[in-house]
Amino acid sequence: MGCCYSTSKRTRTPGYEEPTVLASQTPFTVSEVEALHELYKKLSNSIIEDNLIHREEFQLALFRNRNKKNLFADRIFDLFDLKRNGVIEFGEFVRSLGLFHPNAPLEDKITFAFRLYDLKQTGFIERDELKEMVLALLHESDLELSDDMIESIVDKTFSDADINGDGKIDQEEWKAFVSKHPSLIRNMTLPYLKDITLAFPSFVVRTEVEESD
């Protein structure tokens, strides 16, 4: 009995999925998934020790402040929480971060960004959503703009992106807009993910020890 408990400890964690399975479904190697598990354990036990990432833990990791409200961080959390049960499980964490891998398909990154900005999840980015996001960004930064300026920025951007002029940006229009402005999805790529095993090597080392045993 003792032998089995010692090796299956991680598999009893809620939401834990086998690294080999996750590696087969994402751009990550098995070692990288193992390294992500090290990071996940740290994030998912920072406030509530249950091996699940709660919204406050996500906020704490992003802002060093568990109570900091941020529209965009909330949207990211909601999109990572694929099962929509209020927590990010390990499999969800790895699959979602996979989109941010330098080798992930560009198409997937563009689609994720679209879903992120489609606040009301209508399948379109609407003008009032765009203005709400600009206001949220200004609120968190030191940048101050008059309402007239904000209106003009939103109008200009919207008219550039809304090619068919129906008052909303659909996925095809978004794709075309991003291809004209590739910097818009620069934050959808985390070069760091290619070096994740260097940043969190402990499990990799332990695996090698176990394998040599």
């Binding site: 529209l71 990211i76 934050n187």
Partner: peptide, 26 residues
């Protein structure tokens, strides 16, 4: 950058909430 030439999505993409690299800081 002159406000009239700002791209609203460019502004938004600079949100700290969209910068996931913070997750990896020790």
């Amino acid at each position: 950058v002159a406000p009239a030439t700002m791209n609203a999505f460019e502004l938004i993409s600079k949100s700290q909430g969209l910068n996931l690299s913070s997750l990896f800081e020790k």
